[in-house]
Write a protein that binds this DNA or RNA. Structure first.
Length: 494
RNA sequence: GGGUCGGUAGCUCAGUCGGUAGAGCAGCGCCCUUUUAAGGCGUUGGUCGUGGGUUCGAGCCCCACCCGACCCA
């Protein structure tokens, strides 16, 4: 940006920076803090003005100046650091030339200040500044101190400004880290091993989704950003690691919405000698623990509605929900393709000629039932047709031992007993390839090495995928996935 | 992809019937030694998202496009 493009506010600050450069180092790096604002406020919360007078506590604090009030020969300012903010009191008598320099400092500048703590007339713990230093000049003015930064586009594109201005935003991202740490600690305690598997796949697998495509020059090979780590993690189960998990990004080449970002974070875990029922119990335990540790209550408020996580989570099948939400649906014809096709037509659903009863059921379920699943609900017994990696149900091979978990009408998790029969898996891959060739670009590819791995035998295993972003949204009362991603995907600026 | 709403000063926002672009905060100058959105006086600051069109005249009306939010698919 040329100077001609800058407004007078920036021009004035740039002139002040130029003056600083003439005086010496404009960006000093020798100031050291010995205290954080919130620690001081907490430590001396009970100390009154006379005590602080009698027991001088000298501190060195640093941070961004968030307000500045000059009243002639005395001034107040507030310094914000990562913990919070503390007020400074500055007097000409005590500071001399540094006081005159301070009057040229701007809100937004990074300052270092030293001096004893005291209480103002109104009782606010403050630093009576005896030494002051400008550490980094802010050339651009901050948003309005009272209204803050409200423009959503700027909040997402310039997240640093959002973090400077909005406490609530900082709180959300701290909570996100706490949630991920809680999950790691809980799984580590269960003797799960955290692993890293490839983000670049020669064959996209593990989910039904369109991938991002890239190219490896040295190998002259097409590569895909992973849509899921599933097939790699299960290779590790074959390898005998028995309990593994990965918390990392997946990439799906799909639209953006309040629920979808092209890159999003999943927890995937694989648990040998377990099954989908134990996964449901695990989810319930994890959600209880998260609510307890993060919120201190199992009564979660999300977007104005109360969710009582202490009540047992509902369990219901796909078929039951289709019947529940489609009055007059003939329960005897749940697997009758022409009947289902007709029902889809009435609902305005576009179906493919290749869609079978399982796929059609799921279309109807998603259209009519999914959004109604507000309280925590496990939807069980997904059709095999839409579950190419799940173990078939022993009593009814039309179904699999699979569930999805919903809160607030949104899918939060997907879990199942893993298909460890290599011949069944090979047949399912072949069916997926046929769908792909019939034009379904979300259908899976045939992964020969994965079949080879299963042929060495994979123990009976349960596997779970948990959407971290949506979990964080729920636990932080955030309406959009962009509110829980530090840098959500945006169209490039013009 | 469709619909609704929005884009005006650094920030938050007004802008009437189409008739000289405004306020608060921030900034700049002066005053002010315990403020709490400090206060007082004065004052600078505009590609009204972009490009066309209608009109004597467009922030406002029409068309196209860009960016964003939300809803729907």
């Amino acid at each position: 940006m040329s100077n001609a493009d800058e407004n007078h506010l920036i021009a004035e600050r740039r002139a002040k920076l130029a003056a600083l450069r003439r005086q010496g180092a404009a960006y000093p790096n020798d100031f050291r803090r010995d205290a954080l604002a919130a620690d001081l406020l907490a430590t001396y919360a009970e100390r009154d003005a006379p005590w602080l007078e009698a027991n001088p506590v000298r501190v060195r604090v640093g941070g961004r100046m968030m307000f500045k009030r000059v009243m002639g020969k005395a001034s107040f300012a507030k310094l914000a650091d990562r913990s919070g903010a503390i007020q400074l009191f500055l007097q000409k008598d005590a500071l001399g030339a540094a006081y005159e320099a301070f009057k040229d400092y701007d809100v937004g500048d990074i300052l270092g200040a030293a001096g004893p703590l005291f209480r103002t007339r109104t009782g606010e713990l403050s630093v009576r500044v005896t030494g002051l230093e400008l550490l980094a000049k802010s050339l651009r003015p901050l948003p309005d101190k009272w209204h803050g930064l409200a423009d959503t586009e700027t909040r997402y594109r310039q997240r640093y400004l959002d973090l400077v201005m909005n406490d609530a935003s900082r709180t959300v991202f701290r909570a996100r880290t706490q949630i991920v740490r809680y999950l790691r600690d809980a799984l580590d305690a269960l003797d799960f091993l955290e692993v890293e598997t490839p983000m670049m796949h020669p064959i996209p697998g593990g989910a039904a989704a369109r991938p991002f495509v890239t190219h490896h020059n040295a190998l002259d090979a097409r590569m895909y950003l992973r849509i899921a780590p599933e097939l790699y993690l299960k290779r590790l189960i074959v390898g005998g690691l028995e309990r593994v998990y990965e918390i990392n990004r997946n990439f799906r080449n799909e639209g953006l919405s309040t629920q979808h970002n092209p890159e999003f974070t999943m927890l995937e875990l694989y648990w040998a000698y377990s099954d989908h029922n134990e996964l449901m119990q695990l989810i319930e335990r994890l959600l209880h623990g998260l609510a307890d540790s993060l919120l201190g209550t199992r009564l979660v408020n999300y977007q104005g509605r109360a969710y009582d996580l202490a009540r047992p989570f509902r369990r219901v099948t796909v078929a039951e929900l289709v019947l529940e939400h489609n009055a007059g649906f003939d329960p005897a014809r749940l697997r009758d393709v022409p009947y289902l096709r007709e029902a889809c037509g009435r609902l305005g659903l576009a179906v493919k000629p290749s869609d079978g009863a399982g796929k059609l059921q799921i279309e109807i379920f998603e259209k009519t039932a999914e959004h109604t699943l507000l309280d925590p609900t496990f939807v069980c017994a997904y059709p095999a047709e839409v579950s190419p990696l799940s173990r078939s149900n022993d009593a009814d091979p039309f179904l699999t031992d699979r569930f999805e978990f919903f809160i607030g009408g949104r899918e939060l998790a997907n879990g199942f007993s893993e298909l460890n029969d290599p011949e069944d898996q090979a047949a399912r891959f072949r069916a997926q390839v046929a769908r792909h060739e019939a034009g379904d670009d979300e259908a899976m590819h045939y992964d020969a090495d994965y079949i080879r791995a299963l042929e060495y035998a994979m123990p009976p295993t349960a596997g779970l995928g948990l959407g971290i972003d949506r979990l964080v949204m729920f636990l932080t009362d955030s309406p959009s996935i962009r509110d829980v991603l530090l840098f959500p995907q945006m169209r490039p600026e013009a």
